[in-house]
Simulated assay, not measured.
Amino acid sequence: MSQNDPKKNEPKTFAKTFEGNYFEDFQVGQELIHATPRTVTAGDMALYTALYGNRFAVQSSTEFARSCGLTQAPADDLLTFHIVFGKTVPDISINAVANLGYADCRFLNPVYPGDTLSATSQVIGLKENSSGKNGNVYVRTTGYNQRGEKVLEYVRWVMVNKKSPQSPAPKTEIPDLPDTVAASDLTMPPGLTFRSYDRDLAGSPYVWEDYDIGEKINHVDGMTVEAADHMMATRLYQNTAKVHFNQHMMKDGRLGERIVYGGHVISLARALSYNGLGNAQFVAAINAGRHVNPCIAGDTVYAWTEILDKAELSGSPDVGALRVRLVAVKDRNPADFPYKDKDGKYDPSVLLDLDLWVLMPRATN
């Protein structure tokens, strides 16, 4: 190009922007360090409560939390999950078709106002789909606080578009994941004790002994999703996924509207579960989970829970663990507990099917 060429001084277009990774950009064993560290504030916790109406006492009251052996009210476990998850979106799922599932998620340390969270991920599996247009990426993500302590670790798999359908398929590697986190691997917040637990202040008389395996609980209440709320929540977590914000990314028709971040539905269902599980103060683990159908602003979310298992915790006679299936549905009575047909196909109203371990007090006196 000659010095007199008028194109020489034209500015470069998009030279410094990052459009995210596509399926062919991932390799098994790849390590990803995610931007940007995020300091959790009391304002974040207050906004989280404003979005979902959580009423669990430990996260609502510093005095109640101190009576349970903690230094102050911690952030809701799912707020921690969403913030760490949001860190990963620009690198892992900005070009995703859908987030497919979770496994082996353990909450390892509580997060308090003033703690700074960061995240890293490792690619642990890849599988190109038969269409040749996308593939599934499996990652293990770890969230850390400012002291380098792990606060959270989980696996998720996500369907990511290919940049070029002609790109060669990688070797298929699917990780071997546990069906559930073993009760012996559950971690309690340091110092936690329910010896002086006040059921009246917590708002529920029911403790670990009062729940039976196989029992199903209709949480009764519902909450309608507003567009402003779900977009504000997703921005709170610095989640940049385009389908939650960018109308130009959407197709015509009902799903031409922005899709609600699946984590928003998780938090709604958890908040609704207070009515029936009001003493389930902590989420200790997510064993497995699926976002079954999309949620759109205007949908009303209801929830029900099935008790799957119970576990005593070694060295903690006043704390018990319940394994629960938390199912969120839209625009239907949650008392209609059958959520699959005889062939195992989900009802179209089902939004979320989540398998959790939760911690609650035991009747020690």
Rank of each mutant, 00 (worst) to 15 (best):
A35Y: 15
V58E: 08
G53V: 06
N54I: 04
T39K: 13
S60R: 13
L32G: 02
N54Y: 14
Y52M: 13
V40E: 07
T49D: 14
G43I: 14
C68A: 11
N21E: 11
T62Q: 02
A65I: 02
F56V: 01
R38V: 14
Y52F: 14
Y52I: 15
V40S: 03
Y52D: 12
T41E: 11
R66Q: 00
T39L: 01
Y52W: 06
V28C: 09
G29A: 10
T62S: 04
A65M: 03
E31M: 14
E31V: 14
T49N: 12
A35H: 15
P37C: 01
G43M: 15
I33A: 15
A46L: 13
T49G: 10
Y48T: 07
A50G: 14
T39Q: 14
F23I: 01
E24H: 03
D44I: 07
N54M: 09
Q27L: 09
E24A: 10
C68E: 03
V58A: 02
G20N: 07
Q59M: 12
S60Y: 10
F23M: 06
H34D: 05
Q30M: 12
A57S: 12
L32Q: 08
L32Y: 11
G29D: 10
A50F: 06
D44L: 03
A50Y: 08
M45D: 03
N21Y: 06
R38E: 14
G29Y: 00
M45H: 05
N54D: 13
C68W: 02
L47K: 12
A46P: 04
E24P: 01
I33W: 11
T36G: 13
H34E: 09
A35Q: 15
T36V: 13
A50L: 13
N54V: 10
H34Q: 09
G29P: 01
G53S: 09
V40A: 08
C68R: 02
Y52A: 14
G20T: 06
V58D: 00
T62W: 02
F64E: 00
E63P: 00
T62E: 00
A50D: 15
G29I: 07
A65W: 01
N21A: 11
L51M: 13
F26V: 08
